[in-house]
Simulated scan of single mutants.
Amino acid sequence: MVRSFRGESLNKVDTKGRMSIPASFRRVLEAGDPNWETGKQPELVIVYGGKNRRHLECFTIEAILDVERRILKMPRGSKKRKALQTLYSTQATTTSVDDTGRLVLPAKLREKIGLDGNAFFAGKLDTFEIWNPETYDDEMFAGLDEDDDFDPDADASIYLDGEEDE
């Protein structure tokens, strides 16, 4: 059974970059790490991306392996493959949860997204994101302009209708 990252959490970040990962997120990380076993700490991959990324995207090991499989199916040398390899391999780091359920973010990553004092965790089903809380509030619905197929002011659940088994 595939577990999903759900919910949101605002957690403290100490001066060394340590922050608690929500307990439900830790269970998903454990389930998504093929090498995890009781008593060990699960690994995850943090994608920090280029200058335009204002958040960190965190993947279970199984989820990033799926992304990598899809990238490897693309033509070698194609611009899309190169861009995706850079994002998901070069601009990413593998780490693990510590013994107390915390994540330790290097200063480079904290500075990139402006973390100071608090971190906002946002579940996104197969990944979770870490944001500066103010940035998240500013960008949560950025780019969701109304068009023929989407109304940003509508209850998003209306878009589930008719999308099954397509």
Rank of each mutant, 00 (worst) to 15 (best):
E163K: 14
P22I: 00
L29P: 10
T100Y: 12
F25V: 04
D137N: 07
R76N: 15
E164A: 15
L44R: 00
V104W: 14
A107Y: 05
T38M: 14
T93D: 05
G114S: 03
D33E: 04
L103Y: 03
G123P: 01
E8M: 15
E164C: 01
N52D: 06
P152F: 00
I158F: 01
T100W: 15
F120A: 14
S78K: 10
E166D: 07
I61S: 00
K73C: 08
G17T: 07
D33G: 06
D66W: 02
P152A: 01
I64N: 01
F121T: 01
T95F: 07
L29T: 08
G114P: 00
K40I: 10
M74K: 10
R6F: 02
A119W: 04
R6H: 09
E37D: 11
E37G: 14
F59D: 06
M19E: 02
A83F: 07
I158G: 03
W131R: 03
K124A: 15
D148R: 08
D153T: 12
V2P: 05
D138M: 12
L115R: 06
P42C: 14
M74I: 02
S24L: 15
F141T: 08
E146A: 08
E43C: 06
A107T: 15
V67F: 12
A156Y: 13
E8N: 14
P75W: 08
D145G: 05
Y136C: 06
K73Y: 00
L125W: 11
P106N: 05
K51E: 15
L109N: 02
D165N: 11
K82T: 09
E134G: 08
E163W: 09
W36M: 04
E30A: 14
K16G: 00
E8C: 07
A154F: 06
G49V: 09
G7H: 02
S89T: 12
